Amino acid sequence: MPHPEAMTDTGAEEASPPGSGPEDTLHLRLPDEFRTLFHQGAHSSVSRAKQISVSAQDLLVAPADLLDSPADWGPVSTPAGEFHLVPVRPERDLALITRWMNDPSVAAFWELDGPESVTAAHLRGQCDGDGRSVPCLGVLDGTPMSYFEIYRADLDPLARHYPARPHDTGIHLLLGGVADRGRGLGSVLLRAVSDLVLDRRPRCARVVAEPDLRNTPSVSAFLNAGFRLFGEADLPDKRAALMVRDRGLRHLL
C-alpha cells in the first residue's frame, strides 16, 4: 500500500527503517507482550487469572486503549492558533479528505487519488480496525485544514525495519490547502501533535516518522519540528527518511 507523507507528510531510532501504512497495520498481530497478560497469575487463584484475561480482552477490543483516546486529547495553543485533533467520521469527512487526496502534490506521495471509494476504503481500514491507527482531522481555529494518522508504530509493519520500543507512536500528515504549505505551518503542527502524543501518552518515549526521502519539504518540516534523522530505510513502497522525536530531547530540539 502507498505510504503517506505529503506536506503536500512518520521515523525511529538507530538501525533500519519503518514501513507501510495504516491499512497494513490492521493485519499485524499484537505482540507477545499483550499475550502474556493472559498467562499472568498462573500461580494465583483461578478467579484472579480470569480477571487478567478479561482485562487483556478489553485491550484487544477497545480502540481507545491502544492510543490513549486521541478524541480526548483536547485543543492546544500553537503559534498558528488553537489546534485540535478530531477523529475522522467518514460520513462527515469523506468528501473533504477525498478532495485533499486528489491534489496532485498529495497524490504523489499518498497514492490515494481517485473516487471517494478509494479514500473510503483507506479510512474504513482504520475506523473499523482495533484502534492501533486513528485517522484525525487537524482543526485550526475551528477550520479543518489537515489530515493526520496517529498509529502504534510498535504494532505496525514499520517495526520490522527499526528497533521498535513498546508504545512508539507514529505520525502521518498532509496539509489540505495549497495556501497552508511552504510557510512553516507543517512544522508547527508536527511539533504540536508530537507534544500531544508525549503529553497524553506517558508510556510513549518516542514519536516516529518515515517520510519519503524525495519529499524534501516533509523531511524539513519534521526536522524543524524537533525530530532528528535516524537513518534511511528501504520500505516496500519508498526509500524513507527515518526520524524520531525523543521525550528526553523534546525541550532541546
Rank of each mutant, 00 (worst) to 15 (best):
Q40V: 14
L253F: 09
T36Q: 10
V54T: 12
F34Y: 15
Y162W: 15
G226R: 05
L253G: 03
R89C: 11
V178K: 12
P236H: 10
H43K: 11
G248D: 11
A179W: 03
T8W: 03
D154C: 05
S53R: 15
P2Y: 08
P79M: 06
G182H: 09
L123P: 08
E116S: 12
R206G: 01
C204A: 13
R250Q: 06
V207N: 00
H27I: 04
C127A: 07
E14K: 07
S77Y: 04
I97P: 02
L185G: 02
D32K: 03
S220Q: 12
S16K: 09
R245T: 04
D65E: 13
P70Y: 03
P217R: 02
A192T: 05
I150R: 01
R200T: 09
T169V: 13
H84I: 01
A71E: 14
R124T: 13
H167A: 14
P22C: 12
H172A: 14
P144V: 07
V106C: 09
D130I: 11
G184C: 10
L59H: 11
G170T: 01
V88T: 07
Q57F: 14
I171N: 01
S187C: 04
T98E: 00
D93I: 08
L190G: 02
L189E: 00
N102T: 06
M145L: 15
S20L: 13
G41T: 05
R200A: 11
G138K: 03
S47P: 01
G231Q: 05
L174A: 14
V54L: 13
L249E: 11
Q57P: 00
R124H: 13
A12D: 02
C204H: 00
P31D: 15
A95Y: 03
A95E: 14
V244A: 15
T25H: 12
V86G: 07
L26D: 10
S117A: 14
S45C: 11
P115Y: 07
E149S: 04
A241V: 09
A179I: 02
F34D: 08
A56G: 15
R92W: 09
F83G: 07
T78G: 13
V54Q: 10
A233Y: 04
W73M: 05
R183P: 02
P135Y: 07
L26W: 08
H161E: 06
L173S: 00
S45D: 15
R245L: 04
G125W: 03
S16Y: 09
P2H: 10
D195K: 07
A12R: 00
L112N: 00
V139F: 12
V118D: 08
E149R: 00
V207R: 00
E5G: 08
G248S: 12
S105K: 07
R92S: 13
E116C: 09
L253H: 12
L175W: 07
L198R: 06
D212Q: 00
D72W: 02
V178F: 09
A221C: 06
T10K: 04
K50P: 00
R245K: 12
F109V: 03
A179M: 01
S16Q: 11
G177R: 11
S218E: 04
L252T: 07
V46W: 13
R203F: 12
P236D: 12
V219Y: 03
L213F: 07
P63W: 01
D195E: 15
D24K: 04
T10H: 05
C204V: 05
S44H: 11
C136W: 00
